[in-house]
């Protein structure tokens, strides 16, 4: 059984079929790319997997068939080991860079209000532990975030905010990381750095499913690519195979006039 198995997943918004009868699986330590034109349902798939939307039909099963995610609230799904970033950044802007990461550790900590108010040793030790862990995660991106740990998140540059979103998601100790257009708005140098960062994340034993429009990233790091159009899967395989698929060319470029 693969780490994540999606079967028959369907989401209708009124008459709009955002995702229809999708079958998708992601294996251990894979990097899988999800591509497709705008509005093809990629982000909806993420929202269904992370529990932000209830599915109209279908199932999402995690942990090699052991854990049903369908119907669970988002915070439970995160606690089970699925973390994500967003297409449009959703950082906690008026909290510091470090605090953004600390929020991510919420589901891995236990301190209760009474222990916190009384300054008990348990919660204090736990806080030191997560602060060390947060610093380690900031260090994943060299000095870029670490040197700005105490500054409010909104002061970061665009690329650094994207990095912080990834670090924050990693703070939840996921086994599966969903990245929604991580390279959007990055220049070529930053994009290459990002690709190395994602490889390093995989090397830590974290499986990655990513949505990306930048084909350099898809070609460079994805073991497998899944193409969506109008909420259904139109191609799957290695990047070179998917790129040649007639259905993919048609979805991106439109039907050729001569063939119509």
């Amino acid at each position: 059984m693969p780490l994540l198995e999606i079967s028959g997943l369907t989401k209708h918004f009124g008459g709009l079929r955002a995702v229809h009868d999708l079958v998708l699986h992601v294996g251990n330590d894979e990097i899988v790319g999800l591509i497709g034109p705008n509005g093809s349902g990629k982000t909806t798939v993420f929202n269904l997997v992370t529990g932000l939307y209830p599915a109209t039909a279908g199932r999402v099963v995690f942990d090699h068939g052991r854990q049903e995610l369908t119907g669970l609230p988002p915070h439970r799904i995160t606690a089970l080991g699925v973390a994500r970033t967003f297409q449009t950044q959703r950082l906690f802007n008026h909290m510091t860079v470090l605090e953004n990461i600390l929020v991510g550790t919420h589901c891995r900590t236990r301190a209760g209000i009474a222990g916190i108010l009384l300054g008990m040793p348990g919660p204090r030790a736990e806080r030191r532990r997560v602060e060390d862990r947060a610093a380690e995660l900031l260090g994943l991106f060299g000095d870029r975030l670490l040197s700005r740990a105490g500054r409010p998140a909104w002061t970061l540059s665009y690329a650094n905010r994207r990095r912080l979103e990834i670090a924050r998601a990693l703070a939840a100790d996921p086994r599966l990381l969903l990245l929604d257009e991580p390279a959007a708005g990055m220049n070529p140098t930053e994009t290459h750095e990002l690709m190395r960062d994602i490889e390093r994340i995989r090397a830590r034993g974290i499986t990655v499913l990513l949505i990306e429009h930048d084909m350099t990233v898809i070609r460079g790091i994805c073991d497998r690519v899944v193409a969506l159009d109008h909420g259904t899967k139109i191609a799957e395989g290695r990047f070179e195979e998917v790129r040649e698929s007639a259905a993919v060319l048609e979805a991106y470029l439109g039907r050729r006039a001569g063939r119509a």
Binding site: L52, T78, V103, C107, T109, I113, L117
Partner: peptide
């Protein structure tokens, strides 16, 4: 009490909800 709460996992969760409730949910906060 306020200082201790402010710099605790509970206080961080509160502030995350203030900043972006949806992101807070996906960060594992009930």
């Amino acid at each position: 009490a306020s200082v201790r709460l402010r710099h605790s996992r509970v206080g961080w969760a509160w502030q995350a909800i203030r900043e972006d409730e949806l992101a807070a949910k996906t960060m594992g906060i009930n």
